[in-house]
């Protein structure tokens, strides 16, 4: 399956991109994407990362579906 991954703020700077599409095995969960990202971008390894799927916060064991839009970001700091 294919999912789209979005980055914001610190993660966009650390990854050097704001979005990309990636292919994943059919049974992938949110944590698999985090693992892939930490492997590909070592500067994400010591960062706390949150994941949203289709604009909702999800836990790390949430199953992904083809076409999902993920967002991976550091703890928010608005206000």
């Amino acid at each position: 399956m294919k999912v789209n991954v979005l980055f914001f703020g610190a993660t966009a700077d650390l990854v050097g991109s704001r979005a990309f599409e990636t292919s994943l095995p059919e049974t992938s969960v949110a944590a698999d994407v985090i693992s892939l990202l930490r492997a590909k971008y070592p500067n994400l390894r010591d960062r706390k990362l949150l994941v949203a799927v289709n604009e909702q916060y999800v836990g790390e064991n949430t199953r992904l579906s083809n076409g999902d839009q993920l967002a991976v970001f550091t703890p928010v700091s608005g206000g």
């Binding site: 914001f8 703020g9 610190a10 949203a52 916060y57 967002a71 928010v76 700091s77 608005g78 206000g79």
Partner: peptide, 14 residues
């Protein structure tokens, strides 16, 4: 509201 917004609403400050 301000406490929760700072924790949950996806906005970041540089």
């Amino acid at each position: 509201l301000i406490r929760e917004l700072k924790r949950t609403v996806p906005i970041w400050k540089k």
